[in-house]
Amino acid sequence: MADPFSAYDVLAKRDTPSWNERTRDVIDKRLALAIAENVLGDTQLATLRVIVARVCPDPPDRPATNTLAMIVRKIAEDEGDGYRPHTLPRTAECWRRGLDAIEDEARLRFNCGFASIEPDQADEILYAVESGKMCSELWGNLSPELFWKWRLLPDLVSSHWAQPSLWSAMGFGGPASPRGYVRLTENRHDPWEASEDAATNSSHALSQDHEE
């Protein structure tokens, strides 16, 4: 997949008026976040690592992301979102049980740990979690569909799209204070925003049938 904003790096704006002190601090810490130890067992961590890679791959030719470390931190702090279906346990327990069940599912289907199976096989299991077609008894009263929809997917994409590499790859302006934006109308952008590469632009230009 071509990166439509190949010349753009949101981090290059770190020392411009687009970032305030607080934001620099927050993003610096995020980029430096290490995977907390003793939060997950080795197998759980290996399973989570593959899930992150399959569900939220890093954009090619961009600095590696810290998504895995953010999820582990969330589990370590048992951080909630302010709501959960009554059949889902709290964040940490929910993740640990889900990871164990996915590992068990891999062993049942492929006789091999989730971290060691082929990517296609990992995807097959993840699709099965998504649609609730699971065999492992470890799921117990934890619904795979609910786990996927209310825990796994939102946690993963929220952490992944908190990464500057992903902001760059999607052409997002990134942090914006004190400097915001001036040019607000379609097909206009400020010099401190991402420019879209011409080639990908035309492939996106699906409809030009209204005026301008």
């Binding site: 008026p17 204070s177 004190p178 400097r179 915001g180």
Partner: peptide, 10 residues
Amino acid sequence: NMGGWKNWRQ
């Protein structure tokens, strides 16, 4: 305006 003259480009 936010950022004053330091944010002159905006």
